[in-house]
Simulated scan of single mutants.
Amino acid sequence: MKKKERYDLILEHFREKMPLVTTELDFGSTFQLLVAVVLSAQCTDKRINQVTPDLFAHYPDAQSMAKAEEEDIFEWIRSVSYPNAKAKHLVEMARVLMEKFNGEVPSTLDELLTLPGVGRKTANVIQSVAFGKATLAVDTHVFRVAHRLGLVSKSDNTPYKVEMALTKYIPEEDIPNAHHWLLLHGRYVCTARKPHCEKCEIEKYCAKIIS
């Protein structure tokens, strides 16, 4: 099966089965989305959604969080992975937002990358979910599923290479959704340790079935 044909079949499946899709993180503003995405690194969305209601009740925006100390934030996020580092990043990030962006989350990649704790994956999520841009964040789920399905080659061995390979073949209008399609497929079907191939509706297009 040619790569373009595989893309066409898989994308058509997702368009039909998951036309309305977005992040599973709970948030009430772009700032809160940014905080949630930073917290979600190497942690489940379920855990983050348990933590953020109380965190946002005390620090709903950049202005309030910029006035906090790291130990204040730590108390609300201590159950997430790497709470010390994330508390430091969140306080510093809020302060940079106040100093450079008037408390508003910027929309461009270059500006987002100036924020403490924000890397390319996080920046792409924010651009896509908050601003509707055609950016595709590559996390561990997207990376794994893209390789297993045969959407990328073995030489695409970094998140950036996978991102470039995927965006080459995925139509621009599908790119914001494609991140969630692949992520959710990896989270619930094509899981890391034991993929549930028996309930996978796109197994017939998978690279392990058709090379």
Rank of each mutant, 00 (worst) to 15 (best):
V138T: 14
T122M: 10
D110P: 14
D45Y: 12
L55H: 02
T140M: 13
A123E: 13
R144H: 08
T108L: 09
S40A: 14
T122Q: 08
F56T: 05
A68L: 04
K67A: 12
A36R: 03
P60R: 00
N102V: 03
S81L: 01
A94Q: 03
K67C: 09
G117Y: 11
L90R: 00
I77H: 01
A36C: 05
E71L: 09
D54M: 11
V51K: 13
L113M: 14
V35S: 00
S107W: 11
A123I: 14
T44E: 13
L55D: 01
L113H: 14
A57L: 13
V142P: 07
D61M: 00
F131Y: 13
T114C: 07
E69P: 04
S81P: 02
V37S: 05
T52A: 02
F74A: 04
I126H: 09
G119H: 15
S81A: 01
A62G: 01
H141I: 14
F143E: 09
Q63F: 02
E92M: 07
W76K: 05
V51I: 15
I77F: 04
C43G: 05
A134I: 15
A57K: 15
A85D: 06
A36E: 02
T122G: 12
N124F: 05
L109W: 07
C43Q: 06
P83D: 04
F101C: 03
D139N: 15
E111I: 11
V105T: 05
I73N: 01
A36I: 04
L112A: 07
P106Q: 09
E71W: 11
A94P: 02
K133D: 07
L90I: 00
D61P: 01
V91W: 02
V138Y: 10
G119F: 08
K133N: 10
G132D: 13
V118D: 06
N124W: 04
S79K: 06
D72G: 01
T140W: 08
S128Y: 10
Y59H: 02
R78D: 08
N49P: 06
V125S: 14
T52Y: 00
A36K: 02
V35M: 01
A68K: 01
K88V: 01
W76Y: 10
V145Q: 08
T108H: 05
V129R: 14
G117E: 07
E99M: 02
S79R: 08
K133Y: 08
A137T: 14
P116L: 10
P60E: 00
L39D: 09
I126D: 06
K121F: 11
N49I: 06
L39W: 08
K46L: 12
K88G: 03
S81M: 02
E70D: 10
V51A: 13
R95V: 00
I77S: 00
V129C: 13
Q50Y: 06
F131L: 09
A68V: 03
T44H: 15
D110W: 12
M93A: 04
T44L: 13
V125W: 05
Y59C: 00
P116N: 10
Q63I: 02
G103R: 04
Q63K: 04
E92S: 07
E75Y: 11
I73T: 00
V80S: 11
E104V: 14
N102D: 09
L39T: 09
